[in-house]
Write a protein that binds this DNA or RNA. Sequence first.
DNA 1: CCGGTGAGTTAGACAAAGTCCAATTCTTGT
DNA 2: ACAAGAATTGGACTTTGTCTAACTCACCGG
Lengths: 139, 139
Amino acid sequence: MNFQPYTREAVADLLRGHDITPTHQRIEIAFVLFEKREHLCADQIFALVNARHAETSKATVYNTLKLFLDKRLVRELIVDPSKVFYDPNTTPHHHFYDVDSGELTDIPADSVRVEGLPALPPGVVAEGVDVIVRTRRAS
Amino acid sequence: MNFQPYTREAVADLLRGHDITPTHQRIEIAFVLFEKREHLCADQIFALVNARHAETSKATVYNTLKLFLDKRLVRELIVDPSKVFYDPNTTPHHHFYDVDSGELTDIPADSVRVEGLPALPPGVVAEGVDVIVRTRRAS
DNA sequence: CCGGTGAGTTAGACAAAGTCCAATTCTTGT
DNA sequence: ACAAGAATTGGACTTTGTCTAACTCACCGG
Ligand SMILES: [Mn+2]
Ligand SMILES: [Mn+2]
Ligand SMILES: [Zn+2]
Ligand SMILES: [Zn+2]
C-alpha cells in the first residue's frame, strides 16, 4: 500500500481495504496525507482539509487519525514534545529529526541494521524499533 | 557523573560542577532525580519534591528542568505523546518503551550497534541517535 | 551590620494539543 | 423510503507547559 492514490475513488478503495467505511471526511483526510506523503500533525491536517471550504471538525480529525492508526493506515511519530506527527508510510523506516527546524526526513530501513538488542522481558512482544537521529545546524 | 549522590551536599557539588548555582529548590529537584535514577516527568517531580512540605512551584520545576537540560545534567525523552520524561542518565543508552504501561527501561548502549545510517545532509550535525523499542504485552 | 543589586522563585493567567459529550446528521440494509 | 446504527459536530473541558510581573533571597560593598 505504498502507492499514490490520486483520485478520491482510489482513496476510498484504500480505506475499504483497511476495513474503514469511507466517509466524505475520512476520504479528505486520507487524501491530504497520501497526496503529500509528508509527516503532518493534526492541526496541519485540519487546516489542509478545511482550506477551500470548512468540511471537517477538529473532533473528526482526531477521531479519524486514531482510527487510521488503529487500522494501520498511518503510523504515529513521537519526536516533538508538543505534537504528534502522522506518517503515511507504514513500511519500516527511520527518521532524521532536525531539532532546530522540526523537520522530519525518512531514512530507508533496508540500509540500517540495529544489532545487539537484548532479549525482551518475558510476556512482552516488540511492536517496532524506531531509530531517530536528532540533528542540528552545524555550530 | 554516573554516581549516586546521597547527600544534599553531594548534589550541590554535582550542580556546581555543571555551572549551576545550587539553590534549595534545584537541590531538591536534582536529589529526587538522582536518588531514584528513574525516568520521571515534570508533574511526578513536582509531586515528589512537594511530598513533605510545599517547597517548589510548578514554574520552578519547569525552569529548573530546562536549565538541567541545557547544562547537560539530565536528558529529555520524547516517547509519550502527552508528556516529556527526564532521564538522569546522560551517558548514551537506549530504551524499551511499553506502550501499554508507559514504562521505560534502559538498554545499555555498549551492546547495541546501529549500522548503515546514511550520511547527514550538509550543514547539519548529529546530536544523538535514539533507539526506542516499542513493546506491548504478548497477545 | 545594612542597603542595593541581580539572580531565582512564585502565583496565577494564558496557550496549545487533545478529549469528551450529547445532539445531530449520514450511511446502509431491508 | 425507513429504521437503526455509525459517524460527525460544536463547544466545554483537561492536561501539559509557558509567560509575566511581583516578590524573595543570597551576596557584596561600604
Ligand atoms: Mn504527568
Ligand atoms: Mn500539549
Ligand atoms: Zn517517515
Ligand atoms: Zn534512560
